[in-house]
Design a binder for these strands. Structure first.
Length: 268
DNA sequence: ATGGTTGCCGAGCAA
């Protein structure tokens, strides 16, 4: 055949599972339906020795984990070979929170994927908000280094950033919150302005698309959601973009996470 | 309604 099928189509997703042990079977059901090639998970909430790896390996995924006891924790599931796995966001030797993992996906071409769980930062102002902003500055520095490598790059995860008011149902409810504060949005834009694109906005321009609905106060029934789970694409990754979406139906299932998966389709 | 819910792990904390 002549050079028409130089690339293959891959699906890459991010999913904050709010405990991988509590959600393993829900995740497996979703893996069978969506059949993503690579998934970054957040809030796995367990140490690496008790991560339910075999459940995902039995579905055909290799599993890379970076966890801690009870809080945070990130992982990568991939049907495609992973190389050069790195855990932890550089820039602060004192930081022991498990919020960053990255790896190179080696298919016909290579792609760098970062899975991140950006600090929530509430209450703001305060030490937790200071940690959030410093963490975003470190992510900016890491993003800059990754871009210099000139490999198509995706930074995906729970950003705990509502980029614009149209990314939430009730903007007035979020005034002063760490997810919408001017400093937070500026730090997010600073990363974007390095040359990244919010993949979901390439094919969805309307307000009212959300990736998180709080468990409390009937947020789901009122569709009182926010869009905080993002896949940021470097320019070379953006050139390969085909489609994106949010698997909102997952929030309506039994014992759901408070987040739902967000995915993209790329030509790789 | 000064609330509400879920998961950590078995008391509050984090979200």
């Amino acid at each position: 055949m002549s050079g028409r099928s130089q690339f293959s189509v891959v699906i890459i997703a991010t999913y904050n599972v709010n405990s991988v042990k509590a959600r393993a079977h829900a995740v497996v059901d979703w893996l069978r339906e969506r059949s993503p090639d690579v998934v970054v998970l957040q809030e796995t909430k367990c140490t690496d020795d008790v991560f339910p790896k075999t459940i995902f390996e039995d579905c055909g995924y290799c599993v890379e984990v970076h966890g801690q006891k009870s809080y945070n924790g990130v992982a990568i599931l991939s049907k495609i070979t992973l190389e050069d796995v790195r855990c932890g966001l550089p820039g602060d030797d004192e930081d022991d929170q498990a919020r960053w993992i990255e790896a190179t996906v080696v298919n016909k071409r290579a792609l760098r994927i970062c899975g991140l769980y950006l600090p929530n930062g509430n209450p703001a102002p305060g030490p937790k908000f200071d940690y959030k902003i410093k963490w975003m500055q470190r992510a900016y520095a890491r993003a800059k280094i990754l871009l210099a490598d000139e490999m198509p790059t995706i930074m995906a995860g729970d950003y705990n950033v509502i980029p614009q008011n149209e990314d939430c149902k009730n903007p007035e409810q979020w005034v002063g919150d760490a997810l919408t504060r001017a400093e937070t949005r500026a730090a997010f834009r600073r990363i974007i302005n390095l040359g990244f694109t919010d993949a979901f906005r390439l094919n969805n321009s309307e307000a009212g698309h959300y990736s998180f609905w709080d468990y409390q106060a009937g947020a789901w029934n009122k569709d009182n959601g926010i869009r905080i789970d993002h896949l940021l694409l470097s320019s070379q990754a953006t050139d390969r973009f085909r489609d994106s979406g949010i698997d909102k139906f997952m929030r309506g299932r039994e014992r759901p996470s408070d987040h739902v998966p967000v995915w993209i389709e790329l030509n790789l």
